[in-house]
Each structure stands twice: as structure tokens, then as C-alpha cells.
Design a protein around this nucleic acid. Sequence first.
RNA 1: GCUGGGUUCGUAUAACGGUUAGUACUCAAGAUUCUCAAUCUUGCAAUAUGGGUUCGAUUCCCGUACCCAGUACCA
Length: 535
Amino acid sequence: MKRTRVRFAPSPTGPLHMGGVRTALYNYLYAKKNGGDFTIRIEDTDSHRFVPGAEEYIIKSLRWCGIIPDEGVDENGKVVSTPSAKHPHAPYRQSERRSIYRKYADQLVEAGWAYYAFDSAEELEKCRAAAESAGQTFIYNSGTRGALRNSLTLPADEVATLLETTTDWTVRFKMPEGRVVEMDDLIRGHVSVDTSTLDDKVLWKRADELPTYHLANIVDDHLMEITEVIRGEEWLPSLPLHYLLYEAFGWERPRFAHLPLLLKPVGNGKLSKRDGDKMGFPVFPLNWQNSEGETYHGYREDGYFPEAFVNLLAMLGWNPGTEQELFSMDELIDAFSIDKVSKSGAKFNPDKAKWYNREYLRMKSSEELAQLFIPVLEAHGISGADPAYVLKVVELIRERATFVEDFWTIAPYLFIAPSEYAAYGVSMVPKPDPSKPIDPRAKVYDESLTAPFVAKDSEKFWSAEIYAMALEASRQGEAMEDYIRAKEWPIGKVMNLIRLGLTGSASGLGVLQIAALIGPEEVERRMKYIAERLA
RNA sequence: GCUGGGUUCGUAUAACGGUUAGUACUCAAGAUUCUCAAUCUUGCAAUAUGGGUUCGAUUCCCGUACCCAGUACCA
């Protein structure tokens, strides 16, 4: 039995988005499930589209997710360029493997599976334009190659000269005529394609002496002893070519699995990097800044736990057939099975993503969450917070939080006094009730506190009354509820007013809980402040 | 256009010829409460469509519609 070996082969043309991470994850799960190796190979055969920093970003992203390669371009942050016991197949970057591919391209030409093509890009462009104006599509294949400039049509000596003297020729695959390629896909089952619909793909380019994806991919997968190729659905159309390439080389081919695409949450089409910022969710694992200085949001920076991100990604297009939804990486490895991967594209649901994060947040201990919360507090200018106090806050808020950041956004007033009051809250302060006139001179409450209201106008009597009750009640500390009930005051109204004073907001945590946390002196201070502000 | 792939509640999916078509997210209502969340309970909501095959089709076959991908000297 051959050892299972899979690879994740990204192209460093930009940041890896969540669809790419999912592809890597499924490869990783498959490898680990089968006790095999997960390798990373960088497919940088397109010299024009190389983006600095992209490769590093990809490796860092996968590491954040806990997807650690057994073998590959980078381990522990350093470049692996020369073969070693641990890295027998190095280098893992195709640009560093340049010298390998030429001989395979030539081998195919010698065997009659490929030929040299001398058509310039402009000539081909002309062919395409001509076909298009005739309402057809130009295909470089058995139907057209006889009329084009290549080693099949040109005399041998001219071919030899061109090979020597020009530098823009290519090696093209000679797509056989009239064959039906029968293929098997681990996810889709049997697929067949007629070769007459396929074209003579470029395999190798003299201009930069680099192979194209197709050649490099097959050669490297073979050399690296890959047993299963698990990749995105966009590769399904080139599967016949890849099958034929294995046949041409006489190599045993790996098994293939084409994963469904990740689709945008609303509307049609696949998830693109713009969708996230438009719809308010990240599409990248980590923040990414492009060359124009624009930053794209990352799951990490938006507060997602890597375990939650991995979990939600795993469940997009795969499911174990049970009702379990929460999986650790080890559980995923244990449950993973490629034939449970669905065939259709999965629309990403940001709400569900948040749900996953909340579930993971709830699984963490309050101590751990408090630890994570400290830096958030510091970022908001709260330094040197008492760890015991922070822990109490976390315990009070944890059930309502989705992200660690929420510990701050839900109740900043547990750390700083409110300076503004929500308009809605202020509007809820009771208005005068004509049917229930209050005697402004009643001496039930502290006159110094009710005075501002009484002095202004009778319209505010009722408000003043409530303020006075709230102030009085707030002085009772944690006993305020009993006090209010004993006095038979309208508990909801009084409590809401105290909450407004304490938090600046019309809704939120329990008043008693807030009072207990911030302490009686702070309660008094805040209540006096609101009395002055709203007078 | 052509070639290939896909199609179960709004979303992710379960049901590998026989179920009142299940679950989760979202949404709605109720309970609870000093408010808001959380929580609990209940509810709304799906087999794209037309033909076959079969005693019986979500499930198998064919057509149609729609969606997606590919159609580069990009991956």
C-alpha cells in the first residue's frame, strides 16, 4: 500500500482567500485521516503575476489555521531549497525547479505527444479575432494546427533554425483526435469528454523557460509521489488534458477530487475578494494590504478564533452525515471522508460564521477570555485594569458575546463613565402625567437633587420625581431592588433611569450587576452627573 | 456560443427507492426579566420543471430551465 501524499499548490498571485484555505484544509484532513503527508508547493510559473509577500501570507495563514505541512516550501519560517531527509522533494517552488521541466517537454515532442509552435501572440490574436467575427471560436487543435506555424507543418531544417534563433516559441500538447477520455473523480464519479472539444495547450514557454501550469503540475505531482489531487472545481475542465499527459508520460496517475466552489452570500457567482468589505465579513484569513495600500479584512483581525474559522470552513461543502456541527481539528480528521463532500457550490453564510465563533467563545474558560480581553482594553485606552475585575466583567458578559472585542463594545461603561446619553433612552424618561399630579414641594426626597427640576417648569415634575426616586434607589447599592419594591415605586421606570445614568444606554446589563461591579461611589457620581446633564 | 459540472426550506445540509422530508443558522411568536441580550418553548419555510423506469421516486434515466466553471504563452 502506497503512502498517501497530497499537496496544496497555490499560486502566489495574491492573498489566499477562504476558498483556498478550505482546499488546503480538505487536503490536510485527507492526508491526516489516511496517515499520509500534506505538502505545500508554490506554483509560481507565471512570472508576470507574481505578488511580493503573497507566498509568505499563504504560509502564515495556514499556520494560523493549524494546517502545518509535513513537507514543503516553508517550515518554521525558513526556505527549503535543497533536498534533505525531511524534504526529499525540494525545492518546492516551481520557479526553483525551472531546469527540471524542459526535458519532459522535449520527451513529449520526441514521443509525438507534443510539438514546437512558432506562432506569435499577435498571430494567434488575429486568428481568434477572425474566428470571432465569423461567429466561431478559434481552437488550436487538430482542426487548425495544420495551417499554423509549427514543427508539424514546417520543414525540419526550418524548425531547427527557429528553435535556435528565436525565443518566443512554445511546446504544445498534440491533443489526439476523436478520443473520448473517461475519467473518475472521487467526488463527482464518472466524467467523460470528447477530445475534439479540447485544444493544444501550451506546455512550455521558451520566452521565460518555464512550463505552464499543466506540465509543471503533472511533472511535480509525479516526482513528488502525490497519490490524490484535491483541488478546486475550476480545474475540472482541464482534467482530460491531465489524464492524457499521464498517459503520454506512461506514469501512474493520482486520483482526483474536484471540490465545489464557495459562492457569495447573496446573488450569483463565486466569492470574490470585494464581497467581504461590501457585505461586512472577511474573505481572507488574515488582513491583507495590496500594493495600492487598501486593506482587506482577515478573520483573525476581525476576532475569529482559528478553531472556529477552520470549523466553519470544513462544514462548507462537507458534512459527516450526523448532526454534529462542532468539530476540533482532531475530530475533523477523524470524521473526514472525501465522498461526503458535496458536488454543488456552497453559498457562504456570515451569520452562521458568527454562530461558530460564539460557540467557540463559550467553550473557552473565563480566565482565558479575560487574558484575551486585556489587550483589547489597552487598545481602548484602559491600561492597568485589575485582572480580578476584568475576570468578573468577562463572567458577566460572556453569554452575550460573539467576539472578544464584544466584551468592550457591550459594556464600555464598566470601565469608563458615560459622557453622552442615548437619545432613545432620554426620550424614555417619563413625561408628565396629568392624571397623576405630583406635589413639587413634597419632601420625600432630597430637595437639593430635585430642585433643578422643580425650579424649571412644572412640565418636568414627573421626570423630576423619577430622577429623585432613581437617585435615592441608587444609593441603596445592591439592595436597591428591595428598596424600590418596598416603596412601591414603578420599578421598571426607576431601574431604566438608573441604567441610563450608569451606562448612557437605554438597554443592557442588569442594573444591580452594573452597580455591584462599579461600586457605590461610582454609582453616586454617575447619577449626580446625569441629574445635572438632563436638568 | 461551445464543453463540462451542478440544482432539497432564505442559507448550509440530512434522508445512499418506502420518513408526518430531519437538523443548524436566519426570521416570527410566547415564556422569563428592571431593559436588552442570553436561555427555553413554539412556529414559518424546500425536493427547479416535464417526461419516463418502478408497486413506490428527493433518490435511477432523458429533455427543458436556471446557476457555476472552463474556453490564455494565468493558475
